[in-house]
Amino acid sequence: MIPGSFEYHRPSSVQEAVGLLAKLGDDGRAIAGGHSLIPMMKLRLAKPAHLVDLGGIADLKGIRADGSDIVIGAMTTQHELIGSSLLESKLPILRETSLQVADPQVRYMGTLGGNVANGDPGNDMPAVMLCLGATYHVMGKSGERRIAAREFYQGAYFTAIEGGDLLTAVRIPVPPAGHGYAYEKLKRKIGDYATAAAAVVLTMSGGRVANCSIGLTNVAETPLWAEEAAKILNGSALDAATVKRAVAAAEAITAPAADARGPAAYRTKMAGVMLTRALARAKSKARG
């Protein structure tokens, strides 16, 4: 399988890349790790006339603390997320999630920016970003915009990204020390997209939930932020009856497609099971 012909561009700065993307319009496509785009090009489902390779832009790399946030460059790979000691201490849910993305070879190439910007409902990071309340830095013709992850996803492969825009970084507020977290993913085999998955971050105080946030993967056209479910859990001791009510609220907002991973009703139920497990594991990790 050989992709269609295209012209190759390798800008060395964000400004140059944004200029190219703006000029090329619908004919241009940014390529990050390429592990979603190149397979699509081989199948001729994507036929960009111009590829703008982001691999040569040093400014898109790296993980840094910025006040109470952590800012991760869009071209940071899953492999680099896994190896980061800063993330391991401040945002361990990212490492846990990255380890469940695809396989080792894909993680060496696949980037956080590509994972969150592509808009594929099967990608794992978007739900984690909704859960964490992340913000995306998007550079366009008229300068930089900051878009909340919770407002970014509009449909399968449709996002707030417009022609000429480039997602340059992901900004994540660091959860309080002692928070509990878990990303529970059901998949048929290593490397598969989720049948359903749930991300949970919570803080406990005196044995009760002080704050809780939940994201769901691949059970709708977009990642889901389960706000109602989290509200039900706040103030509770995560007792079985409350968890059951919250899980029902989370299941209620799902609208999965039926595919090789199972019928829609099954995937909704599995989202509930993943959430139940993620809550239990997050609680066991939380202090307070």
Binding site: Y8, G34, I38, Q105, Y108, M109
Partner: peptide, 11 residues
């Protein structure tokens, strides 16, 4: 890095 050479362009 271990790379799947079917998923990267020679360029």
């Amino acid at each position: 890095k271990s790379v799947k050479s079917c998923t990267i362009f020679a360029v």
